[in-house]
Amino acid sequence: MQTKITRIQRNQPEFLEIHCHTVNDEVREIIAFVKSRQGQLTGTADDRLYEIAVSDIFYIESVDNKGFIYTKEKVYETRQKLYELEEILKEKHFLRVSKSTLLNLMKVNAIKPALNSRFIAVLYSGEQVVISRKYVSELRKALKGDH
């Protein structure tokens, strides 16, 4: 796919236009990346495509190489990889808390101690997410504002 960038005047709205033969996975990935940069993620649920506001996401989990976005009411599947989402969302207070989970710190109600050097994050939805021992120092940094 070729790329073309055209500079526009400041008073004109920025937009991205894709010219393609078919809307395939590659195109969908590009769209998802651009939207995620704007504070939105794309996910599927019940065979429908949804735009999910980042502020509505509680956590993102990877299970068997599939990504799942958890909001208060729904779970969406995403094609984006966890490490990609981690990179995109780190400015928005999302933190890797285990090998397979990315947690939105703004949705955490409390942190509780757990056995085997872990902690438990209790979310405003009532769900609990495990914070692995390995990521506790990252959490400490993030809460101190060093992240």
């Binding site: 207070h93 710190l105 703004m106 955490v108 409390a110 101690p113 902690f119 959490l139 400490r140 809460l143």
Partner: peptide, 23 residues
Amino acid sequence: MWYQKYLQSRQFTQQLKKLQASE
């Protein structure tokens, strides 16, 4: 050790609330 961890988790929660309030 458990009490120390409990205190740490309380500190995390307090810092979290501060972060959320500031945002």
